[in-house]
Amino acid sequence: MPGSPLSTFNFARHQRELAALSAFAILLVLTGIVSPSFFDPANLRDLAVANAPVLIVAVGMTLVILAGQIDISVGSQFAVCSMLAGSLANTGIPVPLLVLLVPVAGGLLGALNGAFVAKLRMPSIVVTLAMMVVLRDALRWITEGAWVQGMPSGFQWFGAGQATGQVLIVIVALVVLFGIRWALNNLGAGRTVYAVGSDSEAARLAGVSPQQVVWVVFMLVGALTGLAALLNSVRFNSIPSNSGLGLELKAIAAVVVGGTAITGGRGSLIGTLIGTALLGTVGTALTYLGVNPFWEKAIQGGIILLALLSDILFSRMTSASIGLRREGAR
């Protein structure tokens, strides 16, 4: 691979995206051979709709990880925002207001995380661990497991009907992804996320306020989680009180499999898209392949480890030619 200059450049920058993409391709081909009905448009549509909310959360998670932080409270935020969406809808407020309010509520939760991390300089993994437990248990205490039901008919699919609603959800997810990707690559604010993530001190000396960037990023992940919760809620006509369990791990795994460095400063949203698609498809593909569901968790763990190993493999192959070496992991 370190042959022509062009291929060296591409592989060095997008090695992990390519690795995830090839894994995804292998999975698709394998499933396609065993069970061609996997490529049935209805199945692809269902997969896209089910994974769109996860994708939105994973986009937020990518931002946080790029900035060198982590947020493991997104699952609990998701549950709180879902319940809020249902309860608000039941008060009869108009849908556009709902679309505004739920992400704002998520943003407030995120801002709280951000305040602890940015202003009080606390480690994000601890802050969000505490937030995860507090939000989840508070919700359990308040709802006692009751579901929110009996939403007005305009709630499911935003009243637009199933076919339109499904397309809408996927489009919103993709718009979020590509919009933020554009901002990350082309706006000054976007570049500062990378700057803070790769070297916070250098970013500060260059005139960027790392605290401000981190705070905004946490607020964004909260708002995106709120949006995802809303989009997920409108797929159904009732809202369970325990939604979003394990969502944080799903999102982090998708981001990491997509090649974003957990140490911050390096990664792309296209990678996150591939990672989400790969991990979101595995479960369904296994059902099509007739693999026993008992092994699903083990296979997902294996994918994460393989993604990491492929990273090393590619690094070894390319580092000699471009003189880069991985930083030692802390």
Binding site: I125, A261, T263, K297, A298, G301, I304, L308, G328, A329
Partner: peptide
Amino acid sequence: LKLPPLIVTLGTFSL
């Protein structure tokens, strides 16, 4: 292999 512990053990957590 100098991989980040958080992600390695997230993988083995599932595995």
